[in-house]
Amino acid sequence: MHSGSCLCGAVSFRLLSEPKTVSNCHCRMCQNQHSAAFTTYSSVPRSDLEYLSGQELLTASVIRKFCSACRSNIEWSGSEKFPDWASITMASIDTNLKPKNIKDVHLESRVCWLQSS
Rank of each mutant, 00 (worst) to 15 (best):
L58R: 00
D104Y: 07
D94K: 11
A60S: 14
Q33N: 15
R110L: 09
G4D: 08
I88M: 06
N96T: 14
S53H: 12
A69C: 10
G54W: 11
R71Y: 12
D94R: 11
C30E: 01
A60T: 08
E108G: 06
W85Y: 02
S23P: 08
H26Y: 04
N101Q: 10
E75I: 08
R110D: 06
S12P: 10
T59Q: 11
S47L: 15
I102D: 09
K20L: 14
N24A: 15
K103G: 03
I88L: 06
E75Q: 01
F82Q: 08
K81N: 13
S77A: 03
K103D: 09
T21Q: 04
T21M: 07
H2L: 05
S87G: 00
Y41R: 03
N24F: 04
R28N: 12
K98V: 10
I63T: 13
L52P: 05
N96H: 14
S72M: 04
L58G: 03
L107R: 09
K81G: 05
Y41I: 07
S117L: 11
N24W: 10
G78E: 01
D104F: 10
S12G: 03
L16R: 03
S68N: 13
F13K: 03
S61I: 04
I102T: 12
A86P: 07
A69L: 07
K65S: 03
Q33M: 11
S53V: 15
A86D: 07
K100M: 00
I63K: 07
C8Y: 08
G78I: 00
S47E: 14
